[in-house]
């Protein structure tokens, strides 16, 4: 082999190595990006699934709770900035405010829009939920604006992440860790506390739960409050990551999280988490390898397919088993 041949050979190896490094980096970028998306979807999906588990209602206004959480955080963050607060302290205070405000909304929505319809035909609360969703979107649009508002990036960049920022940013890391912690707390609540036991009992057999002394109205309220708090945290984290919000962000996020909940089997808590990650990855890889134009279409197509072919979800129980 001549000199030229050797050089060519070396070039090819270099190029191949370079490409394979790029290829792997890109793969990990999509994998971790999907993880971040997925954890947000999971946080919101949990609210859908918990409510459905107990009162068999798809709470269409849940996406709006998430949107209201993001708006609350934006307002509080702007105020705190004026008063001279900084990064992490703003993030924490704004999140707390968002959680409180969204929970109050979730609690109130249940009391005025769903509770009076508890004995009505199943379609009635569903229509009420859609009405609530439309009402809240327009309320925020009128009270705020229909334009996109810039959302400050509240999540700091960590020094130790500097070399990896192009693959997995500090913000993504924080989102994932926060979501994981919250899901662990929820698992503890549901599995090991008295309230959690009351929630599971009410979901499995409401009448028997009442006979056992469970105040089911209270359990339902706590479920709405918990779900709303999770959605609010999701709203703050994603708004801070993406950098802009408007009144309609709850609609798309809500439908996607709903897709995640259905994917995992609506009513199942681990199902919602699994469905969230599954959808996050599916979207991330589809947009990364196919085309980003199809991002939303993809989620909806998945929803339709699941509803047609496996309505009980990936790990859900079939209807017959549920009773």
């Amino acid at each position: 082999m001549g000199k030229r041949g050797r050089n060519l050979h070396r070039d090819i190896i270099l190029k191949f190595n370079f490409d394979s490094v790029r290829f792997m980096e890109y793969f990990f970028e999509l994998l971790l990006g999907g993880l971040t998306r997925g954890s947000i979807y999971a946080l919101i999906a949990l609210g859908y699934t918990m409510v459905y588990g107990i009162i068999e209602l798809i709470n269409f206004a849940h996406g709006e709770i998430y949107m209201i959480g993001a708006f609350t955080a934006l307002i509080v963050a702007s105020l705190l900035t004026i008063y001279g607060f900084h990064g992490v302290s703003i993030l924490i205070l704004a999140s707390v405010a968002a959680v409180i405000y969204s929970s109050a909304y979730g609690f109130t929505i249940e009391k005025i829009a769903y509770k009076p319809l508890r004995r009505a035909p199943r379609l009635s609360p569903l229509i009420s939920a859609i009405g609530m969703s439309i009402f809240l979107q327009n309320y925020v649009r009128l009270a705020q604006t229909s334009d996109f508002l810039p959302f400050p990036s509240l999540i700091p960049e960590f020094g130790f992440m500097r070399d990896y920022e192009h693959i997995f940013s500090s913000a993504e890391l924080v989102i994932f860790i926060a979501a994981a912690l919250i899901m662990a707390m929820l698992t503890f609540l549901v599995k090991l506390t008295r309230m959690g036991m009351a929630m599971r009992a009410s979901a499995q057999d409401r009448k028997m739960a009442m006979l056992s002394g469970v105040d089911v109205d209270r359990v339902i309220s706590v479920t709405f409050i918990t779900g709303s708090a999770l959605a609010a945290v999701g709203g703050v984290l994603i708004a801070s990551h993406i950098g802009q919000i408007n009144f309609s962000i709850g609609f798309i996020a809500g439908i996607k999280a709903f897709t995640a909940a259905v994917l995992g089997g609506i009513g199942s808590i681990p199902g919602a988490v699994l469905g969230g990650f599954f959808l996050g990855w599916a979207e991330s890889f589809a947009t990364g390898y196919v085309s980003s134009d199809y991002e939303d279409v993809f989620a909806f197509a998945l929803l339709v397919l699941i509803l047609i072919f496996k309505p009980e979800g990936l790990i859900g129980r079939s209807k017959a088993n549920k009773v």
Binding site: M197, A201, Q204, D205, M208, A209, S212, G213
Partner: peptide, 17 residues
Amino acid sequence: HIFQRMSVMENLHMGAF
């Protein structure tokens, strides 16, 4: 009306709710 997806122990604890 046994709580189907709770263990026997949990069902008993529900009785003592």
